[in-house]
């Protein structure tokens, strides 16, 4: 009887370890917002169809989004964004591939909120750049949430703003991301 209890307890500990050793997480409904504030108008767009893979054991993250999934309040604005500025037919995707700095094994994180630095290569409009940004990771009940904000200068990504709308579109736009990851099974 004592042996049976011992093995039951051992199994429970082993299963608990399996639960905590979940390394890879995915989301296919990550949210990204961009916000441009210019003298004549503010422009905001959202996509909740951003995919990402997070590997906490290797401290790596990959994010991918299709630019045409951005939704604007005005249909015409959305079309101009895709056709005239982002040239989405030619450059359909924006990607980020990077790693977290400062922690050797994030998979050991217990429930709580942590700030880590992510650095890597971002590609927008066919132009790739190195970026570094703080990311807030929230670990809760086996799930991970990641939030970050960074500023992107449109000129640095080869996005041309015609003079006629220069007072409508900011030179630097704010990109806000919120991803809720599920364990990858």
């Amino acid at each position: 009887m004592k042996l049976k209890i011992f093995f039951t307890l051992l199994s429970l500990v082993f299963l608990a370890q399996l639960g905590y050793s979940q390394d890879r997480f995915v989301t296919r409904s990550g949210h990204v917002k961009f916000f441009s504030s210019a003298p004549l108008e503010d422009i905001e767009a959202h996509s909740n169809k951003v995919s990402s893979i997070l590997d906490l054991k290797k401290n790596e993250v990959v994010v991918s989004m299709l630019i045409k999934t951005f939704e604007f309040e005005k249909k015409l604005m959305q079309e101009h964004f895709n056709e005239n500025y982002m040239e989405s037919d030619k450059y359909p995707k924006s990607t980020f591939s990077g790693s977290f700095e400062g922690n050797s094994d994030l998979s050991a994180l217990k429930d709580g909120t942590y700030t880590v630095n992510a650095s890597g290569e971002i590609s927008i409009h066919g132009v790739s750049k190195q970026i570094e940004t703080p990311v807030t990771l929230t670990v809760s009940n086996g799930k991970v949430k990641a939030d970050f904000v960074f500023m992107a200068k449109v000129k640095e990504f080869g996005i041309k703003i015609p003079k006629v709308v220069v007072r409508n579109i900011a030179e630097e736009v704010e990109v806000t991301a919120a991803f809720e990851y599920e364990p990858y099974k």
Partner: peptide, 9 residues
């Protein structure tokens, strides 16, 4: 719109 890691949009 194409493939985005897992899903076709």
């Amino acid at each position: 719109y194409g493939l985005n890691l897992f899903d076709i949009q």
